[in-house]
């Protein structure tokens, strides 16, 4: 139970710090800020947990216990950062579902649903994100694929082909 408590306290503490910072001012580079908060919390938490304790000894007593807590902390950090993109911006599928759920009976038709979500414009948002993330650049009206974008495309094309997955979007 001791190791579980330490692991939850470290991750929970990092999340609280993240929440407090976001309530004051949302950072410009949010993913980088999340990484920095969680990665800083790990060594600080480990130092505190191995040098302080209650009763019989420190909170964390062996290297394997430290590794166990670190494994949880890194897994939680990565999972949260992945989930954060969906927290930050509702996906088109979630928007569609919520619109249907909130509609009065008998529910919208396909045409009505598509009209209602048209203003969300996910394609323009994704294109803006790719420009900002350095995956593509735009000269006049032409989009050019940059090396970073080519690498992303290659990784996921290879994975999808290997797994026999359908084309995305």
């Amino acid at each position: 139970m001791r190791v579980l408590v330490v692991a939850m306290t470290m991750a929970g503490g990092a999340f609280v710090v993240h929440w407090l910072i976001w309530r004051v001012r949302i950072p410009r580079r949010q993913t980088a800020a999340l990484l920095a908060i969680f990665m800083l919390a790990l060594p600080v938490g480990l130092v505190v947990a191995t040098t302080t304790g209650a009763g019989a000894g420190p909170w964390l007593r062996t290297p394997w216990e430290c590794l166990h807590v670190s494994l949880w902390h890194v897994a939680f950090m990565l999972a949260y950062i992945v989930a954060y993109s969906a927290i930050e911006e509702r996906s088109p599928s979630m928007t569609l579902l919520c619109h249907v759920a909130d509609a009065p009976p008998p529910g919208p038709t396909r045409a009505e649903l598509m009209e209602a979500v048209r203003v969300v414009s996910p394609v323009e948002i994704r294109l803006g994100n790719m420009l900002r993330d350095g995956m593509v650049r735009q000269d006049a009206e032409v989009l050019h694929l940059l090396p970073k974008g080519r690498r992303w495309a290659a990784v996921f094309a290879g994975t999808s082909s290997f797994l026999g997955l359908p084309r995305g979007g």
Partner: peptide
């Protein structure tokens, strides 16, 4: 790889030889 619109858009650019009118 299944559902990402961004990945799909990047794949279209690759298929077009690296550039495409916006």
């Amino acid at each position: 790889g299944i559902a990402s619109l961004r990945i799909r858009m990047l794949a279209e650019l690759v298929a077009a030889g690296g550039q495409l009118p916006a």
